[in-house]
């Protein structure tokens, strides 16, 4: 496919970063950070996903069209999350309805 060949060392570096991310996730699970729980977990997960997409999937070196395609995938995920959350956040606003 695309002509770009990344050095092997980069892949090992990314792999290391992913392992550290996993370690952080496991470590954080041992402590209760209150409202920060979800924020930390999701941030680590997003960072890991980004590394995989940019480097392992070569999007970093791909054409603008590939960026648009990858970006639209994310945008669609955002639609799913945000509109689903519109339900969860507004539940129980009407007195007597379920939360």
């Amino acid at each position: 496919m695309s002509g770009h060949v990344a050095p092997k060392s980069l892949y090992y570096l990314i792999f290391l970063a992913l392992m550290i991310g996993t370690g952080v996730t496991v470590l954080v699970a041992k402590f209760d950070l209150g409202p920060l729980n979800n924020i930390v977990m999701l941030s680590v997960a997003c960072a890991k996903a980004l590394l995989v997409i940019l480097f392992f999937m070569h999007v970093r070196w791909s054409s603008r069209l590939t960026w648009v395609v990858a970006g639209s995938g994310f945008f669609w995920l955002l639609i799913l999350f945000s509109i689903t959350m519109s339900d969860y956040m507004s539940r129980g606003w009407v007195p007597g309805t379920l939360r």
Binding site: I83, Y88, V94, T97
Partner: peptide, 16 residues
């Protein structure tokens, strides 16, 4: 953007 019309009586928030 319309999927929630299947959930009107499923316990979904009325605002959604």
């Amino acid at each position: 953007f319309v999927w929630g019309h299947h959930l009107f009586v499923a316990g979904q928030s009325v605002y959604a």
